[in-house]
Write a protein that binds this DNA or RNA. Sequence first.
RNA 1: GCGGUCGUCGCAUAGCCUGGUAUUGCGCCGGAUUUGAAAUCCGGUGUCCCCUGGACUCGGGAGUUCGAAUCUCUCCGACCGCGCCA
Length: 430
Amino acid sequence: MLDIEMFREFPHIIRADFDKRNLPHDAIDAVIQADQEWRRLLHATDQLRREKNEAARGIAQAKKDRDEQKAQSILEQVAKLGDEISNMEQQTAEALHNRDLLRMRIPNILHEDVPISDDETGNTTHSVHGTKPEFDFDVRTHNELIEMNHWVDLKRAAKITGSRFYFLKGDLARLEFALQQYAVEFLRSRGFTFVQPPVMMNRTAYEGVTDLGDFETVMYGIEPDKYFMIATSEHPLTAMYMNETIPEDMLPLRLVGVSSCFRREVGSHGITDAGIWRVHQFTKVEQIVIARPEESWNLHEELLANCVDLWNSLGLHFEVVNICSGDMGTVASKKYDLEAWIPGADQYKEVVSCSNCTDYQANRLDIRFGTPGHPNQPIVHTLNSTAVATSRALVAIMEQNQQADGRVSIPQVLRPLMGGQETLEPCSIE
RNA sequence: GCGGUCGUCGCAUAGCCUGGUAUUGCGCCGGAUUUGAAAUCCGGUGUCCCCUGGACUCGGGAGUUCGAAUCUCUCCGACCGCGCCA
């Protein structure tokens, strides 16, 4: 959410941003108008309350003076104002709610490096890493590999839950486990603190970190407690410090979180999403940073460098993409994706997303830094980046490291975590 | 799930029984004093607004009342004990 001051003092900045995104300005005008309406109502309400308070003050005095007649006459005067005020209070509260609902739909201001384009074809290549693997046999898709090796059971999962859920079995499940631990240790060695978050959040906290539309299309709601399953550990780890002032010497705060992630994936279909590429539940190791505004852009590059080094160490071929205006979404100001080479699909596909959300989440969550208790402290910046979403990393490893016999070579760095094993063997249970 | 104790400004506290607009200490900021520091003294230190002024604020919401931190209901959260449990 953008600071309301942006709409009052610098609307031209928001307008320029909307031009980049090729959006009409109606939504901005609506916020400005709603803000004016709220302020008008607030002021009118305050004036009424003032009248009432002034009158009511006389009651205490009159009673002290034992002047019951005077007290009674004031009472009648004040009673009338009471109804008027409660009516106005309701209108004012509604106006504020309306303003912020409109305001929450305004996206973050794009960084100047973001390429301008209406859709994802405008994304630009930032860098290319590793070498594209060559195969002297017909490559299999990961979907074929998991089936012939019995590594994933989608059918039985559909039976007990529904489509796009899965049992992960045998060596592929062990590899998934190894990936988690490897990524956590990798980031720990770079100064990140390991945190395991709750996988459900209440609505108030959740509204601070995500696009409002996500409540309909992304998150699972839990009844009767009104919680939401997290779509990523980014959400609880960023909201963790809501309504707090973080002592400045604690910044930048580097956290590495691991959690199951749950996504409804409403409207997502297609053959390119087959197998375990797009699923309702997966595990993700995530980097989170809370920082001073002046250091956030350097830290964004640091997060990307961590991803690049991590994925390079797995021996995989991928490229880094600078996401353009039309593909950006609501919360991020700038975003890099890592796209891994998926031979069976003959394309690069998204495996990592690395964002600087600047003060967009922190405004809503009211996370500040400085001396706790000191008024008007500055708002922090929040950043997040995938380290590995294990299901997608498994797809990249399976497809890039596949052998003619359908077995898969285990990345060197993960072998010590799998008892020195060099190849993923078929699961003995079908 | 049951029973109890509790939730007040960054932290800690008073006020609640008996309704009249939040006390004190620490911390922090500014000033005085000092070569400098400590100590001491003075002032400030929640939010919002159309800001010489005003309104709001005692976990959230509702109710009673002219008026609620205070009384009533309800929800949330914390802690302790019991029960159940990986």
